[in-house]
Amino acid sequence: MILFWFLALAVVASAVFVVTAKRPVYSVVGLLANFAALAIMYLTLSAEFLAVIQIIVYSGAILMLFLFVIALLSSGVRPFSVGPDRLPRVLVPLSLFGIVALGGLLFVIALNPSAAGTSNASGAPLGPPGQANVFGSVADFGKVLFTTYLLPFEATAFILMIAVIGVIALAGDVDPIPPKARRRK
């Protein structure tokens, strides 16, 4: 219980920091803290495999990617200068509405917590993590992933491949319009 509130505080604080940090590098650090806290929270929710993945893939791979891009963009060229983050005036009521709606969601959930449902669907009992036939264990997770959900799994593999190809096509050396020609316009 105390752990949850502590983690929740850490998550919210780091999230706010991510969004409000002046420089992107700080944002990345905030995000790292956020992800780490989330990983611990996953562990408390018996999702051990996801917790590991969260650390390895998100913190290890994706955030590194962000860092590389930041390093790439700010080296040699003018430093990042982000102006005032103002919205177009028309969109202000919209954003207000969106925030109110999200607040409404919180309100609804707080109003009837049972709406989420607490039925025990899988027969696996809770227990110490790391063993088969315990809810959330890596063994169970793997079994389900490669049997019931094989097709979505393959599909994500395909999506990743397309993403790789797309990135190569986008950021590769082949640049149809040289920057100078473009600037002259």
């Binding site: 929710l45 018996s46 999702a47 495999f49 996801l50 993945i53 969260q54 893939v57 998100y58 791979a61 994706i62 990617l65 962000f66 891009v69 989420a116 449902g117 607490t118 039925s119 025990n120 669907a121 899988s122 696996a124 809770l126 809810f135 959330g136 169970d140 997770f141 389900v144 992933l145 959900y149 979505p152 799994f153 994500t156 999506i159 990743l160 397309i162 993403a163 790789v164 797309g166 990135v167 986008l170 950021a171």
Partner: peptide, 30 residues
């Protein structure tokens, strides 16, 4: 929710989300 309903499907979905997020991040950064 997965924990609440004791159902592995939520984990699987979260896993897929992470994969897609990775792809999204890669392309967005590119």
């Amino acid at each position: 929710y997965a924990r609440a309903s004791m159902n592995n499907a939520g984990h699987i979905f979260a896993f897929l989300v992470i994969t897609v997020a990775a792809a999204e991040a890669a392309i967005g950064l590119a």
